[in-house]
């Protein structure tokens, strides 16, 4: 960290730091310590992790976590660009409307959001009623309590992060660059891929890292929409801890998530710092 930290800064930061150390850092260290304590005997070993990695349930949950997060990241990018473009280029009135719609999920509790998706995707939900109504299917589709439902729910929750990340960089684009590309013969799709995307890369990468890591560590929405039979890592951890009372496995999953989460924070800092430097160098 920077060398010239002022005494005032230390004094102002002390209460918050103390709070974080007592309530976050110490419990995390305690958790890590517990995950390294084997059931049999004393001392430290990786036994809990070895058991965990060998278990098929863990492997499936890890794979599911990654699949969900990749899909959520891709979907938020695909939905985020058009929304951010509209929001940044529309009249102030339309922009406000778009932003309210995008931000609104933030204001709801996860339970309310999940219940909303149940109403839409459930057996007697809007989607199934419609598909049966137009005669496309005879029996209701299983759209909830599975990985699909987690992906839909998480995309909904995490879309604002992507839109806000993209919006900040789209608003900084010099419109003359798009005009120049157009005069040189680039049609709007070409302009999007050759001018808008390269210029918004920092925001895109920030958004993707943010969405991916939040999706990996999300609990409430996957728990409510995914059901017990297709747990992702966080849900699996909950099941070990509160359904099976297998604390050694639960703490090991927590350890995995902790390392993953820290890894993403470090990666994010590294990438954003590099991009900031490049952006500054490039005017």
């Amino acid at each position: 960290m920077s060398t010239g930290v002022k005494r005032e800064t230390l004094i102002i930061g002390a209460p918050a730091s103390l709070w974080l150390v007592v309530l976050l850092v110490i419990p995390c260290l305690f958790l890590l310590f517990q995950s390294l304590t084997p059931l049999s005997g004393t001392g430290l070993s990786l036994e809990n992790y070895e058991n965990l990695v060998e278990s098929g349930t863990f492997q499936k949950a890890l794979r599911r976590s990654i699949i969900v997060s990749v899909w959520v990241t891709v979907l938020t990018v695909l939905a985020g660009y058009p929304i951010a473009l509209v929001a940044s280029r529309a009249s102030p009135r339309v922009r406000t409307l778009v932003m309210v719609i995008v931000i609104f999920p933030f204001l709801l509790s996860a339970v309310v959001r999940a219940y909303g998706w149940t109403v839409i995707l459930g057996e007697n939900g809007v989607v199934n009623d419609f598909l049966i109504g137009i005669g496309l299917i005879a029996e209701p589709l299983r759209l909830i309590q599975n990985t699909f439902a987690i992906i839909i729910g998480e995309t909904h929750v995490l879309l604002p992060y992507m839109v806000l990340s993209l919006l900040t960089v789209i608003q900084r684009i010099d419109r003359n660059l798009e005009a120049a590309a157009m005069s040189l013969g680039a049609s709007p799709p070409v302009i999007f891929f050759k001018v808008v995307v390269p210029l918004t890369l920092p925001g895109l990468l920030t958004g993707m890292l943010l969405v991916f890591s939040l999706s990996m560590t999300a609990f409430a929405t996957p728990f409510l929409l995914g059901g017990p039979r297709s747990p992702i890592l966080t849900v699996l951890m909950y099941q070990y801890a509160y359904t099976l009372f297998d604390w050694s496995k639960a703490t090991a999953v927590a350890g995995v998530l902790l390392v993953l989460g820290l890894g993403f924070v470090i990666l994010h800092r590294f990438v954003s710092r590099r991009l900031m430097r490049d952006a500054e160098a490039g005017r």
Partner: peptide, 20 residues
Amino acid sequence: IKPWLRDLGVVFQNYALFPY
């Protein structure tokens, strides 16, 4: 005619070069 099909060269006050 769409602007990208007009075959015109444009030079802007702020140069508008692609920085990347």
